[in-house]
Design a protein around this nucleic acid. Sequence first.
DNA 1: GAAAAATAGTTTAGGCTTAAAGTAATTTCA
DNA 2: TGAAATTACTTTAAGCCTAAACTATTTTTC
Lengths: 168, 168
Amino acid sequence: MELEQSAALDAESKIADAPGDHKAELRLWLRLLATNSLIETEIRRRLRERFDVTLPRFDLMAQLERKPHGMTLGELSQRMMVTNGNVTGLVDRLLAEEVISRKQHKSDRRSHIVSLTEKGRRQFARMAKEHKDWIAAMFGELTQSECVALTKMLGKLKTSVRIAVTQS
Amino acid sequence: MELEQSAALDAESKIADAPGDHKAELRLWLRLLATNSLIETEIRRRLRERFDVTLPRFDLMAQLERKPHGMTLGELSQRMMVTNGNVTGLVDRLLAEEVISRKQHKSDRRSHIVSLTEKGRRQFARMAKEHKDWIAAMFGELTQSECVALTKMLGKLKTSVRIAVTQS
DNA sequence: GAAAAATAGTTTAGGCTTAAAGTAATTTCA
DNA sequence: TGAAATTACTTTAAGCCTAAACTATTTTTC
């Protein structure tokens, strides 16, 4: 309905710029979702097949790997963009596998610091090496500069989303 | 491996093209993951808040909305990129809400056709309208042509991934 | 046409995830 | 200082999701 109006007003822009349509945005969102899902499913499959590990556990270990002194559960949940309760469960399972350790925070008795054990560091190193190659192979059709450009544009999208989410 | 060659040949590109590094690809993957997660979390939150519905249910209804004659569970699971068992469960819950119906396939007695009920169509229409505006607002900082360009690049990435996944 | 293979869907066990409510410790501030 | 608010984390209930094993039916193959 609105489509007809704008087409009448602005013959140049045609359907593409039609207000209230938002086809391009929806299309982008569906594409983003599908692409992400495709990669994620494959990574999950390989992590399980090769290392009998899940993506969330791999993610958590990846976070810890960057902080040799460990981090609190709250910090982890922030960085992983998941709830505290989720982290509690993941930490429990990784503790059982002895790839991480948990100790009381020195000054704040509510808080705990988790970090990779030696076993965890070794295990993660092995996984990260292959993981890196999987991504490289999957992204192989893109040139270096295409990767950089795409990263940049996604950065802009991310900023756009953040603005909208914060405002609402 | 081919990368090494090219790095040797092209001294200008230096670290950026360092072989076995793959920083740009990893960075892109993390950015993709984070962006997707940000949007998805917000959409889930709003769907729940406004319509007391989950994203998977919304997705399933969106698939059916495009096929007035309905589709089989297998077709659904393919389009949604999830397992058959997952669809079975979702369909059960949506049946209970009476927004979809299920009937035997005419010629293949293993198969079932599900489609939106009138109630389901009405409900989905309401949700889709708002959903579209949420996406439009979240993507608002991007111009129309940026959306199109980003969609195109993600298409290339998707193709790249498909090639790698199919080969392996 | 009957055995074998493939297909459509369901069930099961287990992990992931969330929101909401709960516990314990710390901080704020009146 | 001590009550109120906040913070860090855990628990719980319910839904999502998967792989693997299963049932029922259809298709293939000999």
